[in-house]
């Protein structure tokens, strides 16, 4: 098993980040073109805790190296199952994901948490990401190890891109919100 983890901060309030999180893979994000569809499978508010639980299915276009794709059967899209938990009273968003495709060869489990920054809880948001990657192809230790390495590398590349893309979404959301709030500003722009 290999572990990828990182943590970073966004200069936006937790409320803004938690709203934009639902738009993360939309048309505003030029950096996550590998995500081609995001579908909601279920959504409920837990009656006892008030926590919003959402199940989503994320469809990705594969950009893995050719040898990995051939090992994994040559499919060019993959599916990820994500459950998220939003606790508005505690101001936390937790996202848990696992791969649906190739799950007999590779097990990827990711947890991401958005919470208010301890240095500036009203204006900044902390993002923590941790992924556990386990290759399961029996016997072939070398291939298993290489497959895990390639997956961790992909996480590293996507983490940088993900941050850049999400920054754009946050900026666009803030702008859209301000324009909505201020008709004078909106008219001036037209």
């Amino acid at each position: 098993m290999k572990i990828f983890q990182q943590s970073t901060e966004f200069d936006y309030s937790w409320e803004e980040v938690s709203i934009s999180n639902w738009r993360k893979y939309g048309p505003w994000n030029e950096s996550c073109k590998h995500v081609i569809a995001v579908d909601t499978l279920s959504r409920t508010v837990d009656p006892s805790t008030g926590i919003l639980r959402t199940e989503r299915l994320i469809t990705c276009k594969q950009t893995a190296p050719k040898w990995v794709l051939s090992l994994l059967g040559g499919q060019d899209t993959s599916l990820v199952y994500e459950t998220s938990y939003v606790d508005a009273s505690q101001r936390s968003v937790t996202l848990c994901s696992m791969n649906l495709t190739w799950s007999d060869l590779l097990n990827v489990r990711e947890t991401c948490i958005y919470s208010p920054s301890s240095s500036n809880p009203a204006g900044k948001t902390k993002f923590q990401q941790r992924a556990e990657i386990t290759a399961l192809c029996g016997g072939w230790a070398k291939i298993r190890n290489k497959l895990e390495e390639v997956t961790v590398e992909r996480f590293q590349q996507n983490a940088a891109k993900g941050r850049e893309g999400f920054e754009t979404v946050l900026e666009m959301s803030r702008r859209a919100f301000q324009e909505q709030k201020s008709p004078i500003l909106r008219e001036a722009k037209i």
């Binding site: 805790t49 639980r53 599916l79 199952y81 459950t83 009273s89 505690q90 848990c96 799950s103």
Partner: peptide
Amino acid sequence: GIDKMVKEAREDNRENDAEHLKPKR
């Protein structure tokens, strides 16, 4: 045939549900 894969993942995810749906107060 995606619904079957989702069903299995849902089973695998029970631990996360238990951990993240519990009251934090």
